[in-house]
Computed example of a mutant assay.
Amino acid sequence: MDAFRAHGFFVVRAFLDVAERAELRRACDAALLHARAHSLETGHSTPRISLLTDGATCAEDDPGAFERIAVFVGSGRVCELLAGLSRPREEETPRLKDAHYYHEQTRRDWDGDWHRDSQFGQPDPEIERAVVATTTAVHFRVALEDDDRLEIVPGSHARWDTADELRIRRGADRTTPDMPNAARVALRAGDACVFHAWSIHRATYRRAPVRRTIDALYAFARPAVRRWPSQAT
């Protein structure tokens, strides 16, 4: 928790052993193979698939694959790493929002945009700033092959952007390698990483080497509930 509060991320070495890693990879690869076989884009030009969507649809090929994935991302072992990371007024129990499988795309290489996940769907920077200051969302990821694609600006989860960061993240040069103070997070196969989704971060996407990383996104904020006005009968 100290590392998370200070830097916005921490790494757990050898979270999965060889046998656990192989079993989880078989399940995730079943979803990836299904996605690639049924789409010319998903799994080829994209760097990830949704395990909650493609994992479920691959059940016709491997009935146990989706269950193995769901059990893992909802396991006490994973959730234990998230304990204590929420803000005081948030729910203590994390809610799973999505799970993805990052892989090497087959068609082209490119550099990802610097971003905070909080910016998606928030065109107004002031609204996004309030989201960053009051809520928590975290990525849990585990590398099934060595993976050094993630770059992050340590401590950015706990503050708003500097002028240079905002210019890069919201400007036209979002793929620049010159983000100030950025650090690369290198994971060996079996390592896990938990990082704040509001941190400034990005990844680079390459056709080689092979990439096999499962990433689950969890939120602690209370879900918004729409209340419909009562109608007279």
Rank of each mutant, 00 (worst) to 15 (best):
M1Q: 15
A3N: 03
R5I: 09
F9I: 04
C28T: 13
C28Y: 05
C28A: 15
L33N: 13
A35V: 10
A35F: 01
A37P: 05
S39P: 14
S39D: 15
E41K: 15
H44I: 13
R48S: 15
I49T: 07
L51G: 02
L52V: 07
T53E: 12
T53V: 10
A59H: 02
D61R: 11
D62G: 00
F66Y: 15
A70S: 06
V71M: 09
S75D: 00
V78E: 00
R87M: 11
R87E: 07
R89S: 13
P94A: 04
H100L: 11
H100M: 12
Y101I: 06
Q105M: 14
T106E: 09
R107G: 07
W110Q: 08
W114S: 03
D117Y: 06
G121A: 04
Q122M: 15
P123S: 05
P125T: 10
E126K: 13
E128M: 14
A133V: 03
T134G: 14
T135H: 14
T136N: 08
A137D: 11
H139C: 07
A143S: 06
E145A: 14
L150K: 04
E151N: 07
I152K: 00
G155A: 11
H157G: 03
H157F: 03
A158K: 08
R159T: 02
W160D: 14
W160H: 13
W160M: 10
A163L: 14
D164E: 15
D164M: 10
L166E: 13
L166F: 10
I168R: 05
R170E: 06
D178W: 00
M179D: 04
M179A: 03
P180C: 09
A182N: 01
V185Q: 00
A186E: 12
A186W: 06
L187K: 01
V194T: 00
S199V: 00
T204V: 09
P209T: 01
R211E: 04
T213I: 02
T213F: 01
Y218W: 02
R226P: 01
W228M: 12
P229T: 04
S230V: 10
T233I: 13
